[in-house]
């Protein structure tokens, strides 16, 4: 058989493409269930870490189901969207992404830690290289931060990437999102600097732009929940 024949080349290429495509599609089909489960567990772990609980992959789903009492979407006025309740990965609160324009609202998770209610809200923003995201757990008064958790896609290792460490996220504990009944969020400042207008934490030294990104995310992403938090704040007083 002549290997340099055009017809042979074309048939060879087509057969190869079909075989490869079938092989990949099959692999994806077989593994996609596990992959989705992994992603969901990872999200549960992040939510739990915002409650200052670092649990292993194996324990995360049970712990999540035990602690998270309710989850739902809220609209721009901060009011619960009807029929959006449910904490399982199939429910709208869990599957809704913040950036999704067609989403019916913003997700909120309600946790019960030793008898006191905490509200967990997701955040998303942009760091130096790519997306950053996180979860913020807030006390029942809608103002005091109970815990925080951050993640990133590709920040500089050793500098910006340090936002994922507990030593950074722990700095947010006990900070106030409201000052004199104004929503100010928590500022991230250069280490050593202060901010008299807002509650603040130290940023990452050397990771200036990533810290700035976290600051923006806290202002804009959490800002979308302003009315919801205001309502909590008002009813607590």
């Amino acid at each position: 058989m002549n290997r340099e024949n055009s017809g042979y080349t074309i048939i060879y290429a087509s057969v190869m493409v079909i075989v490869v495509a079938l092989g990949l599609a099959f692999t994806h089909q077989v593994l996609s269930g596990r992959q989705v489960a992994n992603e969901n567990t990872d999200k549960m772990q992040q939510i739990l870490r915002s409650l200052n609980l670092d649990v292993s992959v194996a324990e995360a789903p049970a712990k999540y189901a035990g602690l998270i009492k309710n989850a739902y979407l809220i609209n721009d006025e901060g009011v619960k969207v009807e029929g959006s309740e449910g904490i399982t990965p199939d429910d709208p609160a869990f599957s809704t992404e913040l950036g999704d324009e067609q989403a019916k609202g913003l997700p909120v998770y309600e946790a019960d830690v030793d008898g006191s209610a905490k509200y967990i809200i997701p955040m998303s923003g942009a760091g130096l290289w790519g997306p950053i995201w996180g979860y913020l757990a807030i006390e029942a008064d809608g103002s005091v931060v109970y815990g925080a958790e951050f993640g990133h896609a590709g920040e500089t290792p050793g500098l910006g990437a340090e936002i994922v460490t507990a030593s950074f996220s722990n700095r947010f504990r006990g900070k106030n999102l409201f000052k004199e009944n104004e929503f100010t969020s928590v500022a991230v400042v250069k280490p050593g600097q202060t901010n008299s207008r807002r509650d603040y934490v130290d940023g990452i030294s050397g990771g200036t732009i990533t810290s700035k990104g976290v600051d923006n995310m806290l202002l804009n992403s959490v800002g979308r929940y302003k009315n919801f938090l205001m309502n909590l704040h008002a009813s607590a007083q």
Partner: peptide
Amino acid sequence: SIPNRIRIIVQLVVVAALVTIVSEV
């Protein structure tokens, strides 16, 4: 059996398919 003209592409496709499988796993 590989036609010489598309040798590089065949190699790349085989490699890319294997890498995709590794990444999925």
